[in-house]
């Protein structure tokens, strides 16, 4: 990839750029292969997961219990040779359990910071909507800022840093649904969906003896992921594509089907995700198809349906599909 000097100070050599793109492709291949051995019959979910990872975003996995949300998160965590922490959110979980806490050391006669569960490359937040809003917000703040501030001291988080939170649909009992502002922090939301009959049959067979997770060995490491994330930011997004994204989010704010449209952050996330998607396809430039492929995953969890949409029992994902149909792809016919 020959990177425009405008976008990067790292390298401008075509050879290095191409090498980066190859690296992205190779790492993605290895990750997808590894994860697919655990998550069967869900190639698109796996691919989206990897895309979000490469785009440097966080992932919200939402579905009913038992379809493999946690398995997906763990599979990704295991495939990368990095620090992995898992937080099981419960109503009594405290913010300090997540961020860490300063404890008075009697010997040293001073406070010492004990890092919380969030200090890792990959954080798996299981059933995040079971935690109290206070705890949720403690984690979500650190997600955006990549740092934790305890007792006036700021501690940077590791890099790469990806949070994969799972949640049950909000209708389920005993949950505290994430506020819109916090949902906005996740780059994408995916649903697992039930496996196909064939995949389910395989699953019963392979999971009978022992979990396939145990066979999973890391196929890449944190440093590589960092390089990949860096490389993805150099994928070229033409003015036309950027215009398309702006058109899409603008339309989401004006359409009557939605009460709340997409935020500027959503546009930013969509562009980053599209770049990663393009890189995964081996392209060094974003095309509108990349945007369309990820629009539903990136946008639908941030949107609030209008009452008409709710009455019609339409999901925000369907609304996003409509938006894609309505907004013409630039360059529009002159």
């Amino acid at each position: 990839m020959s990177v425009t000097t405008m976008e990067t100070g790292l390298d401008a050599a075509g050879v290095d750029g191409t090498a980066d793109l190859d690296l992205v492709h190779e790492v993605a291949d290895r990750l997808v292969t590894a994860m697919s051995s655990v998550i069967e019959g869900k190639a698109d979910v796996v691919r989206t997961t990897v895309t979000v990872l490469f785009a440097g975003g966080h992932l919200l996995i939402e579905d009913v219990p038992g379809v493999g949300k946690t398995m997906l998160a763990k599979a990704l965590a295991r495939s990368i040779d990095a620090t992995v922490r898992r937080i099981q959110f419960t109503p009594d979980l405290l913010p300090s359990d997540v961020t860490g806490v300063s404890i008075f050391n009697q010997d040293a006669r001073r406070f010492e910071f004990r890092p919380g569960a969030i200090f890792a490359n990959v954080v798996v937040g299981d059933e995040i909507n079971r935690a109290s809003p206070k705890t949720q917000s403690a984690m979500l703040e650190s997600m955006e800022e990549h740092q934790v501030t305890v007792d006036g001291t700021t501690y940077p988080l590791q890099s790469p840093f990806i949070v994969m939170a799972t949640q049950n649909p909000i209708e389920m009992e005993g949950t505290y649904p994430l506020p819109e502002a916090q949902r906005d922090r996740f780059m994408a939301r995916i649903s697992m969906g039930y496996p196909s009959a064939r995949a389910e049959l395989d699953l019963l067979e392979s999971h009978g003896a022992r979990s396939p997770l145990e066979d999973l060995v890391p196929v890449t490491d944190a440093a590589t992921i960092n390089r990949v994330v860096q490389a993805v930011t150099h994928v070229h997004a033409s003015p036309a594509v950027r215009q398309y994204i702006v058109d899409l989010v603008t339309r989401s704010r004006t359409t009557t089907a939605l009460r709340l449209g997409a935020s500027p952050r959503a546009a930013l996330h969509l562009l980053r995700a599209s770049r990663a998607h393009a890189a995964l396809e081996g392209r060094d430039h974003v095309i509108p198809d990349d945007v369309q492929a990820l629009a539903s995953a990136v946008l639908s969890h941030r949107l609030m349906p209008s009452s008409e949409t709710q009455l019609a029992r339409r999901t925000t994902a369907e609304v996003v599909t409509d938006l894609l149909r309505q907004v013409p792809v630039p360059p529009a016919a002159r």
């Binding site: 198809d289 907004v327 016919a333």
Partner: peptide, 8 residues
């Protein structure tokens, strides 16, 4: 199809 991507 009007307003679609080139691939479509």
């Amino acid at each position: 199809p009007a307003g679609s991507t080139l691939r479509q």
